[in-house]
Amino acid sequence: MALLTLQEAKKQLNLTTDTDDDELLTYVDAVTAPIEEYIGPVEPREVAEQHDAESGRRALVLRTSPVLSLTSVEPLLTGGVSYPVDGLVLDTGTGEVRRRNSGVFRGLLLFTVQAGRTEVTPTINLAARMLVQHLWRTQRPGRSGGLAGGGEDYSVGQPIPGFGYAVPNRVLELLAPYRLPPGVA
């Protein structure tokens, strides 16, 4: 599952030849990072996180979300306790992990999860296509023209904290329903 394909990007840009495919593929690949910075992993992948539960914790919240599944919870120190995943409950939306028996986690632990999404929604895909279009236009000024009255359809206006001028407001507005909660990245 890809966030955006080369063919989708070409369609967004109204490109019908393969002349720019190599360069455009760089743009297609590049938009994943800023979008995932804002909404978390899109393309499924394995992620490992360390969590300190030395003092005992009933629940731990993963820093990566959304989470598809929990693969393992292993101790990082010799003699530590391993927690079989069938004895754990994962809230895939929030990333909260608890023990089924209401016990506590102890020790320095390594959580391995499959993070990402089961599908790329049409809204996320559109945001990716629009971001490619915005970045593509910065390399080709004057080819596509602006709006009547001289306005630029992809103007960012003020820099957006954490994104600068690279991501237009309209892309962030499309991604807003999927935005990570504060403190999650």
Rank of each mutant, 00 (worst) to 15 (best):
E8A: 13
E8F: 04
A9Q: 00
K11F: 10
K11E: 09
Q12R: 13
L13N: 01
L13Q: 03
N14S: 06
T17H: 03
D18I: 08
T26P: 03
Y27Q: 06
D29F: 05
A30N: 15
A30Q: 15
I35A: 01
E37I: 02
I39H: 01
I39S: 00
G40E: 11
G40P: 01
G40Y: 00
P41F: 10
E43P: 05
P44V: 14
P44T: 05
P44R: 06
E46W: 11
V47M: 11
E49P: 07
H51S: 00
D52L: 12
A53C: 15
A53S: 13
E54R: 15
S55K: 15
S55D: 15
G56E: 02
G56K: 03
G56T: 07
G56D: 01
R58A: 09
A59M: 12
L60F: 13
R63P: 02
R63W: 04
P66Y: 13
V67H: 06
V67G: 02
L68H: 09
S69P: 14
L70T: 05
L70F: 09
L70W: 03
V73E: 02
E74L: 14
E74A: 15
T78E: 10
T78Q: 09
T78S: 13
G79L: 11
G80A: 07
S82N: 13
V85M: 01
V89R: 08
V89D: 08
V89P: 00
L90A: 09
D91E: 02
D91T: 04
T92R: 04
T92A: 13
T92P: 13
T92G: 05
T92I: 04
G93P: 01
T94F: 02
E96Y: 03
E96H: 04
V97Q: 00
V97R: 00
R99T: 10
R100G: 09
R100C: 10
N101A: 15
N101E: 15
N101D: 15
N101F: 06
S102E: 12
S102A: 08
V104F: 14
V104T: 14
V104K: 13
R106V: 14
R106A: 03
G107C: 07
L108V: 05
L109I: 06
T112Y: 07
T112M: 06
V113G: 00
Q114W: 13
Q114N: 14
R117S: 11
R117L: 09
R117I: 13
R117D: 12
T118K: 10
T118D: 14
T121H: 08
P122N: 03
P122H: 06
I124A: 05
I124M: 12
N125L: 12
N125V: 13
L126H: 03
L126N: 08
A127Y: 00
R129Q: 11
L131W: 00
H134V: 00
H134Q: 02
R137T: 02
Q139V: 07
R140K: 12
G142A: 11
R143I: 07
R143T: 04
S144D: 12
G145Y: 04
G146L: 08
G146H: 11
L147W: 10
G151M: 09
E152H: 05
Y154F: 04
Y154A: 00
S155G: 10
V156L: 00
G157Q: 05
G157C: 07
Q158K: 10
G162E: 03
G162D: 01
F163Y: 08
F163Q: 01
F163E: 00
G164H: 07
V167F: 13
P168H: 04
N169E: 10
L172C: 10
L172Q: 02
L172I: 15
P182M: 07
P182Y: 10
G183H: 14
V184R: 15
